[in-house]
Amino acid sequence: MDMSTLNKNSNDDFRHYLLGKLPESQREPLEQRLLIDSNFFDELLTTEDDLVDEYLSGKLNTEDRELFESHFSKSDEHQRKIQFGNGFLQYLNLENVRKQGVAVDVRPSFLNLFRRRPGLVAAAMLVGILVVACVSIFLYRRQIPAANTKQILAITLAPGSARAEGSDSTRRLQRPPANSSVHLQLEIAKNEYRSYRVDLLRENQLFATFDALPAEARNSHFIVDVAVDSSLLDVGDYRLKLSGMKDSNQAEFKDQYILRVTQ
């Protein structure tokens, strides 16, 4: 096979090549072209990034995931990309959440409305003041502390490796109020590790990672408590991957937990 007969869909060739499943007869012309064709080489680098992102967001099928772990990740160069990609994608997820938070907070539209309809805004503000006053009186009468403390919810999740995501037995949680914290308590039978790591995934995309979590004894079993800010939990299905941290600082997958956040 010469260089001109390379698969026109070079992206597929690159994926196979990077995962170590491109036949030798196709590998040689591909590698030779990499050395002399800059655009072709750029294509390889972009495919590397795509593969890393797909792996990190759990989108690779079983065969490709295994090849990724046994072949692609062998080299230091690819390990660098994986480590960076993990941090980068998590950063972007947080940035996205932060951006959404800011978007809700934006006030120019209110100011514009005030400029255009001052009477309407004044009336709305008056109604608002009255509502606040009524709620304050109600709370005072019920002797509920009016301090704006951060609400904390707790929910215990049983291991669910054998359970399909979204099945009837999925634990449900009503969308937590803003400015609250949800403690997801992951049950484990034995405490075999010095600490634990939990990856929070939504629709197979890594959303956040919680490191250095201890296990606490609870009756006949243990729990790993993950405090998740409510801003990270929107309506949808979530998967929590629990890994134990070995003394060598390597993570070992233990179990997964399914959670559905409802309206």
Binding site: E69, N86, G87, Q90, L94, R197, D211, N249, Q250
Partner: peptide, 19 residues
């Protein structure tokens, strides 16, 4: 043989700062 993948950077907070 291939060493297991470590996706978790040693210090995520520091990596975010550097990013």
């Amino acid at each position: 043989p291939a060493s297991p993948i470590s996706t978790s950077p040693p210090n995520l907070e520091k990596q975010f700062y550097c990013l």
